[in-house]
Design a protein around this nucleic acid. Sequence first.
DNA 1: TTCAAAAACTGACCACGGTCATAATCTGTC
DNA 2: GACAGATTATGACCGTGGTCAGTTTTTGAA
Lengths: 207, 207
Amino acid sequence: MTKVTKDELGKRERNKLDKRERIRDAAWSLFTRQGFEATTTKQVAQEAGVAKGTLFLYAKDKPDLLFLVFHDRLATAVDEGFASMPGRAPLIDQLMHLFRRIFEMYAEHPEVASAFVSALPGAEGPNAMAVHGLTLAFVTRVGGLITEAQQRGDVSDEVPPQLAGANIFALYFGALLGWLNGMASLEVALENMLRPSLELQIRGFRP
Amino acid sequence: MTKVTKDELGKRERNKLDKRERIRDAAWSLFTRQGFEATTTKQVAQEAGVAKGTLFLYAKDKPDLLFLVFHDRLATAVDEGFASMPGRAPLIDQLMHLFRRIFEMYAEHPEVASAFVSALPGAEGPNAMAVHGLTLAFVTRVGGLITEAQQRGDVSDEVPPQLAGANIFALYFGALLGWLNGMASLEVALENMLRPSLELQIRGFRP
DNA sequence: TTCAAAAACTGACCACGGTCATAATCTGTC
DNA sequence: GACAGATTATGACCGTGGTCAGTTTTTGAA
């Protein structure tokens, strides 16, 4: 069984991937230039060089285009955040490092980010599912940080790592919503909202 | 300066209140019968006995109708929850009592509730603002519970009550989203998701 | 190469949410 | 009661998101 690389695919699969990319890039370009609401699906189709109906073969609806464009950006931010994370720093510093990287990604285009985050609850469609998968993996990885902290002796063994990961995610998501809708500055959101919130949660992790 | 009761109002104000109620009731009736998506604004207008344009004098857009119908229901659930709350019970029991009352309210019509909660982030319009006000008041009252627990000696004085209230709200909101979209049972959502989450947060409140 | 079945694409079409110029109604004043 | 000004109500109208019957492209088998 040989590894399948991009140019070994059949014409069908290659065309699909190409179109997917073109749609993603067209959507991103228009959303950042005009905003999400002001962009019509017709425009996205035109800029991507496909018919309007084709758009909805690659995204269930207009919000699903947001998930298409943010999936890779989010995945990259998360991966970079974990990759550059200090291994032996206190848990709060690790978390803040991670979330700072993610917040910075959103801060590049706050209006589009706000539309994305607001559309997340209850979203359906293939790209929404992909983002949901990212989220689950993320919560699991945060849970892994808790486990590591337990091995270091920084966190009590009584704390269930996955539950702790889920709580931390809920607090992060709350801070994210508050930030993007209230439009505070990045630093204020991180240091005055998210950090105290996480610190109060982590108090309960102490052995 | 006499207290202004309903029938002392001018004809204008009375008509406005009447229409508002008719719109609220028509929307609620249709949403519960057909679901939010399946209900058209035209139907709501007809059932309320107003023109379609009039609808949008009382709600900024279709989601804002959800906020119109849920505002009173939510306020009632919250008030009842606080009113019937055991005064000297442990904090976790007080919170669970409160949230149980709220979850039960949502459980009466889970589909409509799901649309409501999903529409909350980033919502605009007069009714959305009213619900937002409810939320702020709610967080403050939860903060008050923390203060009371501190006076009882159950919670450390180092815990900022308002921050604690905000954290608890974020965890509640996360559990609510997970419940309404994952469609677990009410009991599972309350006992297996929300309670452990709150308990893990409250660990950090101990003196 | 040929062909038939499957998969992907298309754009005319439609129902809906939301707007706005106009009409109707209310209010306080004389 | 009569009026002017202010507020509220109306529904024809419009642009949009989303659909789907019909068309084109790809595939693998013969």
